[in-house]
């Protein structure tokens, strides 16, 4: 910009009058210098530190997964060479097939597939059942104040803090007396009950954040306990249901303790079977099969995370954001 022009407003005004296009850019009183949004260099210290740290952390977490995938695709002779980071020279899917269909655990040699279906038959009903009951619990506690409600809630919350180990043996006896010890039904009931405190708390807090007037309006409109639950609360609460779904699916799928205690070998869930495959002491350690079996077992929670990650974040944030 010409300093002579900007220092003389009179000249500027006459010049500008004839040149509208210039007037847009050079206006009296606007000086050269910083203007508009600030430009940042892509290689500023700040960016280098942020992306550097993030990359290091990401690599740190991904290396074990990389080793697992690579190892599972190698044959045993190649593994014995000891280069665990080297990519496979000869890709083979045989370890995956063996892990799924023919790996031996104890007397059975039908691989992880049996455990997978056991886990599905445990996870699906206990997830649905626990979420259904807990959401109704939370709804009743948050919206329908009833006598003893506070006490009931306190007992539930205290329940969340009692260590599981304390209850293992009593539950064994209860299940035995009910005649369902060692069955998938028994384990399903145990998972449903143990999911109750945290899920009820989750739903209660979410429903309590729903404006009370909405609930009142529905009552004036003639909706009852179930009508408000199904038609008003449920459709509004998809994010929190997704959060509960993720918590329950991953929690129940990954459970080992209850699985090993409350089932028999033919009803073992996938995690218990994985442990038996990996820790079997007879014969050669088949690292590639072990790796494949571990990835297979972890696949279900992984898929759930990928599919519902966005909704999960929204659900977690929903409590803090006003609707």
């Amino acid at each position: 910009m010409n300093p002579q022009i900007s220092s003389n407003p009179a000249t500027l005004a006459t010049t500008v009058a004839g040149m509208d296009a210039v007037a847009d850019r050079v206006r009296p009183g606007v000086e050269a210098g910083p203007r508009g949004s600030r430009r940042r260099s892509a290689l500023s210290t700040r960016n280098v530190v942020i992306y550097g740290v993030l990359s290091v952390v990401a690599i740190y977490y991904l290396i074990p997964l990389y080793v697992m995938v690579v190892t599972s695709l190698k044959g045993m002779p190649e593994i014995r060479l000891g280069n665990i980071f080297a990519p496979p020279m000869e890709i083979t899917f045989e370890p995956w097939a063996k892990a799924w269909a023919s790996a031996c655990t104890g007397l059975n040699c039908d691989g992880l597939s049996r455990g997978f279906w056991n886990s599905v038959r445990i996870t699906v009903p206990s997830t649905i059942l626990s979420i259904l009951i807990a959401s109704i619990n939370g709804y009743a506690l948050a919206n329908w104040r009833f006598k003893g409600g506070e006490l009931f809630f306190t007992i539930l919350i205290v329940g969340a803090f009692i260590p599981y180990q304390v209850m293992i043996y009593p539950i064994v006896i209860i299940l035995r007396e009910m005649g369902i010890y060692g069955t998938l039904t028994g384990l399903t009931i145990v998972h449903t009950i143990f999911g109750m405190p945290i899920l009820t708390l989750l739903f209660r807090n979410y429903f309590a954040s729903v404006p009370e007037e909405l609930f009142k309006a529905a009552r004036v409109d003639g909706a009852g306990f179930w009508g408000i639950y199904w038609k008003i609360m449920l459709p509004m609460s998809l994010p929190i249901f997704v959060v509960a779904l993720i918590l329950q699916v991953t929690g129940i799928w990954n459970d080992f303790l209850f699985g090993v205690v409350y089932t028999r070998p033919d009803t073992y869930p996938m995690t218990v079977q994985l442990n038996n495959i990996v820790n079997s002491v007879q014969g050669v350690k088949e690292y590639n099969v072990n790796m494949a079996a571990t990835i297979l077992t972890g696949l279900v929670p992984l898929v759930i995370y990928f599919v519902s990650g966005k909704l999960f974040v929204r659900g977690i944030a929903a409590g803090a954001v006003k609707g």
Partner: peptide, 28 residues
């Protein structure tokens, strides 16, 4: 409340967010 022959309007509107205007009007 539904049997008292009243209609109520709230400060925060309290419209059912997942229903259309028509759904809101017809719910009751």
């Amino acid at each position: 409340p539904k049997d008292r022959g009243i209609g109520m309007v709230f400060q925060s509107y309290a419209l059912y967010p997942q229903m259309t205007v028509k759904g809101n009007l017809s719910f009751g």
